[in-house]
């Protein structure tokens, strides 16, 4: 025979289990909503007419001279830094696709997303994680020089317009890749300060 106290104890534990399950389900749902929030247009990823237009500097690579040439443009950029970084790279890649570009790249390839996170031990510094889409390595001309210029152009453009970005890492389709298109190393973190383009003689 179970005592009266034992019966109450079982009942209380049962109610506690139900309540904890409900809290867990609710918390999971909120975390899921929070993760999906940027994808459901709470933050604009492309420039909108409402955003203020600002002057930006794009570091345009030139395959024939092996250099990066600064080009000034006026863009409407979003306030969020991650979205701004992605808008800058989108604009840069669009300029590579333009006819007569000194660093041509095939169409329909670009960047899926850009994430910014603080650099541990360096307050004010940010690490940008640039996630190329799966088509980008195929569209990128293969070679040490064109691949190096692609990476340097993105790194220097980000650092020029968002100085807090001091380090950049690259992913392809969400995964770390060994190389961009068979040459430039993607397994390391690039420091914006120490990456310099080549010189022609």
């Amino acid at each position: 025979m179970i005592s009266r106290i034992g019966q109450w104890l079982v009942l209380v534990l049962f109610v506690a289990c139900i309540a904890m399950a409900a809290i867990l389900i609710r918390t999971r749902q909120r975390a899921h909503d929070r993760l999906e929030a940027p994808l459901t247009s709470s933050v604009p990823l492309s420039q909108t007419p409402d955003e203020p237009r600002v002057s930006v500097t794009l570091m345009m690579p030139d395959d024939k001279t092996g250099s990066l040439d600064p080009i000034s443009e006026t863009l409407a950029l979003p306030q969020d830094e991650s979205a701004r970084a992605q808008a800058l790279i989108d604009q840069l890649i669009a300029s590579w696709r333009a006819p007569g570009s000194p660093h041509p790249i095939k169409a329909s390839a670009g960047v899926d997303s850009v994430f910014l996170m603080p650099v541990p031990g360096e307050p004010g510094s940010q690490l940008a994680i640039v996630n190329f889409d799966a088509a980008f390595p195929l569209a990128q001309p293969s070679g040490i020089e064109p691949e190096t210029l692609t990476l340097l152009s993105i790194i220097q453009t980000l650092h020029e317009n968002i100085p807090s970005i001091t380090e950049v890492r690259f992913l392809v389709n969400g995964q770390p890749g060994a190389t961009l298109a068979g040459h430039a190393d993607l397994m390391r973190t690039y420091l914006a300060e120490s990456t310099v383009p080549g010189s022609k003689s």
């Binding site: 001279t65 190096t148 430039a184 190393d185 690039y190 080549g198 003689s201």
Partner: peptide, 23 residues
Amino acid sequence: PVIVGRTFLQPLDNLTCPALAIE
């Protein structure tokens, strides 16, 4: 014409000798 630059390239970074990638 010659373009001189620096890059991160395998196995260039792993070599214990004066090393040069020529493209």
